[in-house]
Design a protein around this nucleic acid. Sequence first.
DNA 1: TGACAATATAAACACTTGTTTATGTAATGA
DNA 2: TCATTACATAAACAAGTGTTTATATTGTCA
Lengths: 191, 191
Amino acid sequence: MYKNHKKERFLKFATALLSEKGYKAMTMRELAQRLDCDKSNIYNYIKSKQELLDLLLFDIADKFHRGISDIEASSYTPIDKLKAVIQLHVRMTFENPDKLNIHVNEWRFLDEDRKKVFLNRRNSYEDKIATIVHDGMDNNSFKTGEVQFIKNCILSSIRWMYSWNIKEKKDLNPIELEKNMTDFILSGVMA
Amino acid sequence: MYKNHKKERFLKFATALLSEKGYKAMTMRELAQRLDCDKSNIYNYIKSKQELLDLLLFDIADKFHRGISDIEASSYTPIDKLKAVIQLHVRMTFENPDKLNIHVNEWRFLDEDRKKVFLNRRNSYEDKIATIVHDGMDNNSFKTGEVQFIKNCILSSIRWMYSWNIKEKKDLNPIELEKNMTDFILSGVMA
DNA sequence: TGACAATATAAACACTTGTTTATGTAATGA
DNA sequence: TCATTACATAAACAAGTGTTTATATTGTCA
C-alpha cells in the first residue's frame, strides 16, 4: 500500500512543473509549494534537480529507443515502417504530452557529459529514421531527395503535437490523429 | 562613423548568446564577458534583460506580420500564398537563424502582459495561415481536413530549419531549400 | 572649444537559487 | 517488537542573480 506512493506523486507534479516552466525557470521552492511540503523534503525523493531532469529525459529516450528498435527489426516495407514511427510518436504524445515537451526542449540543460550521451542516442534514433527514408527512396516508394532534410521534415511535423493540449480534447481520437498525421507526411496538403 | 556602432555589436552578441543558452540560462555576466566589457556597461545599451528579450521578439514578430499581410493582400491562389509563406520563413531563417530560434523558444519568458500581446499577434498570424488553408480546401486545391491540424503541421514542418546551423552550410542554397520545403508540404514524401 | 552623447569601470545591493544539516515522526515487514 | 525505510520540518549556507550608483573617459558635432 504504502511504499513509494508519494514518490510517484512527486514525479507526477515534477514532470508537470518542469514541462510548464522549463528546467532553469522551475524552482525547487515552487515544486515544494505544489506538493504542499517543504523544499528540503524533495531531497527524500531525488538527489538533485539535475538528477530529476536526467531521470525524465532518459526514461522517454529509452521508450523511443525500444520503439524504433522493434520497427527496425520488423519485416515491414519502408512505408509501413514510417507509419509505425508516426504511430509511436502519436501514442507517446497521448500517453504523456508533458514528458514529450521535456524531451524536446529541456535536454540542453543536462550536464555536459550526460548531454553527450543523450545526443548520441538521439542521433542513433534519427539515423534509424534516415535509414527508413533512404530505403524507401531505393525502393521507389519515396521520392528521391536529400535524406537528412526529409528526415528532419518528418520529425518536425510530428513534434508539435504535445503543445496541442491533448488532455483537454476529449473528442480527440488517437487513431484518427495518427491517420491524419500519416496522410500529411506521406502525401502533403495538395488535393 | 561612431554613433551606436557598439550598440549594434552588443545586439549581435546578445542575440547569439540568448539563442545559445535560452533566456533564463543566459546571464548578464556571461554576456559582458563575450563583449569584453563590464556587466554594468550593458545597461548603457539596454534598460533590462527583459527589455532585450522584448526587443528581439517583437522585432521578428513584426517582420512576420508584415510578410503575412502582404501575402494576404495579394491576388495569389491559396497554393501560391502557401508557397509565399514558406518562402517567407525560409528567407527569414537564412537571414538570422538565432532570431528564429529565440522567436520559437523564448517568448514564454516575456512578462505576463507582453506575453499576452505576443500571443495575440502570433494567433493573428496563424489565423491568416489557417484562412489560406481553408480557402485552399474550398477551392479543391487542398485536400479537405481539419484546418487547425493542417496549419500546425505546416508551421511545424518549417520550424526546425533554424537548428540546421545554416551558417556553416556554405553550399546550401535558399532557393533550393525553398523548393524542397514546398515539395514536402505540398505533396509529402511518397513517390 | 565646449556641450553633449556614448562608452567605460568598480563596488555594492537586495534577492533568489539549489542544497545540507540536524532532527524528528510514521509506516512497514521480519 | 524492532530495525529499517519512508516521509516530514526548520534553519542555515554559499553561490549566483539582475541591477544601481557614482564616477570617469572618450568621441561627435555645433
